[in-house]
Amino acid sequence: MKNVSKVFQTRRQTIHALQDINLNVPEKSIVGIVGPSGCGKSTIIRLLNDIIKPTSGDIVVDDYTYEAKIPADVIRKFGFIFQRPNLLPWLTLRENIQFPQKIVGLKGPEWDRVVDDLIKIGRLEDVADQYPSSLSGGMLQRGGVLRAMATRPEILLMDEPFGSLDDMLREQLDIETLEIWQKLEQTIIFITHNVREAILMSGKVYVMATEPGRIIAEIPIDIPYPRELKIIADPKFLEYERQITNLIGEIDLSTIK
């Protein structure tokens, strides 16, 4: 995958859900999108994943421009991680992780090995053959992340993947996701309302504002990987955090006016 850029402008008659959004996502990087609720973060993910279509504008992947129908090989490059783990209760953890392969039609020992590797990476070997009802929340979330990787996607779309968890567990899973990312080297587009999480994960953060949903800043995070949880106390990190929080805060105040 070469340089990926996505440009789209959306305009509906009544609601400007997103206006003139320009995102540029370099290959094998993590890009975070942070903003207050209702700013259209999730809409971006759904546009990218082609669940809904943009009113105007283009999305370009590898020089391929999104049109009405996306060829199968481009679709396979995407993996989608939901807010909740959303595992199917009648399948074991292993079967859940393998599920996307079955749907897309990927069979054979090499794909079985992909699943085995993912289970190993997620350190879920001991519980792989159990059903979701007997697993803890953290295990389920990890299962949800690993499932999105079963088709070997090059681009991962994460919509507040650990939003339903408490801070401690979320940050731990963030770090684990980073570890997985370093092993597998995908491109990740990451959506969150948590500023700290965005800085912790991303190589670049886009800050969004509401009404209409738009991007107000693009901030490269200049902290080298691999990152550990302790960097959140780093002065550089705190400076980023202050900067982004202020940006979001200002916008909130200006819209109240």
């Binding site: 994943n49 199968a72 989608f80 939901f82 959303n86 749907i103 897309v104």
Partner: peptide, 24 residues
Amino acid sequence: AHRYELMKSLRATKLQTFFKVLIP
């Protein structure tokens, strides 16, 4: 609805959604 969204993100066919999600 989350289960349907999962199938949609995988571009599952209607038949797949029916047998692999709706029925179970």
